[in-house]
Amino acid sequence: MRQQVPLLITFIVGSLLIVSVFIPPFGDLETTFNIWFDIIAVFAFFLGGGNLLRVHINKLRKRKRDWGFSIVTIVGFSVMLIAGLFKIGNPGDIASAVDAPGSLFYDIFNSVQYPLSATMYSLLAFFVASASYRAFRAKNREATLLLIAAFIILLGRTPFGMMLTSWVPDSTSLLQIPNLAQWIMNSPNLAGQRAIMIGIGLGVISMSLRLILGIERSYLGGDK
């Protein structure tokens, strides 16, 4: 029973959504289902928040490894939650946006989350540089081709690319590095991306059918 009910729900919802796409009178069903999904998504926020607190409070209680970071997580979560729920410092009324300019939520977001997130992402530059030195080597023909393409794209994304090849006549302008970079993006890259997308599309269709027909059951948990 614990398996049959979710399988039945998946089958009915999946089939109805397919029907709603292909048979016009059922078109509104898709909108209705999407609104239901939107309502369920709101509950997912509660579940997510609750789960985050549960995991970190447990970690803190049992003094597990790196429990200090759990304090930061819980304090950060609570401060943002309180600032948002009670709209502290919010210049508007109760209906105004939770993050209206001037509110505590807005200020914390802009002075803490914004720089922290941007910094984390920026660290990529250091790792990319280190990886390019250690791993980007012309070991064989394919790696050499990739290396040359990367060089052209890197140069093409800077003004130096144009400066270096501005002498190339217009009749052979494809050989100018920015144009060459654009060609790589427009032709070999595009062909590869399309192949990947078609593959993913076929995979999604096949997996969806397996889910709807109850062949794929791993989402239910357990061994079967």
Binding site: S132, Y133, F136, A138, K139, F151, L154, L155, T158
Partner: peptide
């Protein structure tokens, strides 16, 4: 621009070592 050029230089240096 400067970061891209430095990365390219490191690719060259890495390949010289290789």
């Amino acid at each position: 621009t400067l970061a891209h050029i430095v990365i390219m230089c490191f690719i060259v240096i890495g390949n010289v070592v290789f």
